[in-house]
C-alpha cells in the first residue's frame, strides 16, 4: 500500500499519466464524433497505425513536426473518406467495413514501412516534439510540473476536448451532427443532408484518430515499430461508451485509464511485481475497460440512430 501512495505522490507518475492519456484523447474524440453522427468506426485501430507511420515518416524524411501532424491527419481523413463512402451512402455493414479498414490501413502501413526501410532492425528515431513548460502554471506544487510541462500535442489534445464540446453543444453544426445520430429523418426534414453530415463526421473523426496515432511516434516513443498501437484503438471505443458519448467524461475516462496504466507499469517494478507475473499487470487495462463497459452500460445514453442506416425517401 505504501508503495502505491509513494507512486501517486510522485511528479513523474502524473506526467506519465498525461502522456498515456494524450493519444487516447485524440482518438476517443475522433470516435466520439463518428458515433455521435451515427457511425461506428472500427477502422480506428488501423487508422491510428497509419497516422503513427505517416507522421513519423514525414519527419524522418525531413519534414517539419507540424507538417507531420498534418500529413498524419490527411492520411486518417483519406481512410475516413473510404469508410464513410462505404458505410453512409452505400449503407454497408459498419462492423465489416470498419474491421476491413483496420486490416487495410495496418497492412498498407507495414507494406510502406518495409518499402521505405527494407533492412532496418532497430527503428530509427526522430527529433520529436519537445516538452515546453507553461510559465507560472508549471510552478504549481505537485501537479503543476506534471500537467504543464508536456509537449505541444498534449496541450492540443486538451484544447480539442473544449473545442469539440463547444462545437457539439453550442453550434448549429453540432446540433445537426447530434441529430444525425439520434433522428436522421428529422435532419432530412430540415432540408439538411444526413449523408453529408455523417460523411463529414467520419472524415474529421478519422483524422483525429490518426493524430492520436501520430502522438505515439512524434511525442512518446519517437520511432515507429510494428504492433505499437497494440489495442489502443479498441480501448478508445470502450472509452467512448465509458464517457457516455460526451467529450468531458471521455477525457475523464482517458485520464483514469492513464492512471491505471501508469500504475501497473510502476507496480511491476515493486515487490509485488516480483511475485506476480508481469502479464497480469498488462492484462489490467483491458480487464478494466471491459469492467467499465459493464458498469456504464446500464445508464449509457447510446445515440438512438447509431449503426442505423439512412436512405433518403425510404420509410
Amino acid at each position: 500500500m505504501a508503495e502505491i501512495i509513494d507512486i501517486l505522490l510522485s511528479t513523474s507518475f502524473w506526467a506519465a499519466v498525461i502522456r498515456i492519456a494524450s493519444p487516447l484523447i485524440f482518438a476517443t474524440l475522433g470516435e466520439l464524433i463518428c458515433e455521435r453522427a451515427g457511425v461506428l468506426n472500427l477502422g480506428i485501430e488501423g487508422i491510428m497505425v497509419a497516422g503513427a507511420f505517416a507522421g513519423w515518416m514525414t519527419v524522418y524524411s525531413g519534414g517539419g513536426l507540424w507538417t507531420g501532424v498534418a500529413i498524419a491527419m490527411a492520411a486518417g481523413m483519406l481512410f475516413g473518406l473510404l469508410h464513410g463512402t462505404l458505410t453512409v451512402p452505400f449503407s454497408l455493414s459498419q462492423h465489416v467495413v470498419g474491421l476491413g479498414i483496420t486490416l487495410l490501413a495496418t497492412s498498407a502501413t507495414y507494406f510502406a514501412y518495409r518499402l521505405a526501410l527494407p533492412e532496418v532492425d532497430t527503428p530509427p528515431r526522430i527529433e520529436a516534439f519537445e516538452r515546453s513548460a507553461i510559465p507560472f502554471l508549471s510552478d504549481l506544487p505537485v501537479v503543476g510540473h506534471a500537467l504543464f510541462t508536456q509537449t505541444p500535442l498534449t496541450y492540443l489534445a486538451f484544447a480539442l476536448v473544449v473545442v469539440v464540446s463547444l462545437v457539439l453543444y453550442r453550434t448549429p453544426l453540432g446540433l445537426a451532427l447530434r441529430a444525425a445520430g439520434e433522428s436522421p429523418s428529422a435532419v432530412a426534414a430540415q432540408g439538411l443532408s444526413v449523408t453529408g453530415i455523417r460523411m463529414g463526421a467520419v472524415i474529421v473523426g478519422s483524422g483525429l484518430m490518426a493524430v492520436g496515432g501520430a502522438f505515439l511516434t512524434m511525442s512518446a516513443f519517437n520511432s515507429f515499430f510494428f504492433e505499437m498501437v497494440n489495442g489502443r484503438g479498441w480501448i478508445c471505443i470502450a472509452l467512448v461508451v465509458f464517457g457516455a458519448w460526451m467529450p468531458g467524461k471521455a477525457l475523464l475516462g482517458a485520464v483514469l485509464f492513464g492512471i491505471f496504466d501508469g500504475l501497473q507499469i510502476r507496480l511491476q517494478q515493486t515487490e509485488l511485481g516480483a511475485d506476480v507475473p508481469y502479464q497480469v499487470f498488462l492484462m489490467m487495462p483491458f480487464l478494466l475497460s471491459i469492467l467499465a463497459l459493464v458498469v456504464m452500460s446500464r445508464r449509457a445514453s447510446v445515440p438512438a440512430a447509431l449503426m442505423v442506416t439512412f436512405n433518403k425517401g425510404e420509410r
Binding site: 480501448i235 470502450a238 461508451v241 492484462m283 483491458f286
Partner: peptide
C-alpha cells in the same frame, strides 16, 4: 446487460494472449 460484444470480444483477445 446490453454490453456491445464487438469491444468485449476484441479486448478479450489481448487478455487471453497475455
Amino acid at each position: 446487460f446490453g454490453v456491445d460484444e464487438v469491444v468485449t470480444t476484441l479486448l478479450f483477445n489481448f487478455v487471453v494472449l497475455l
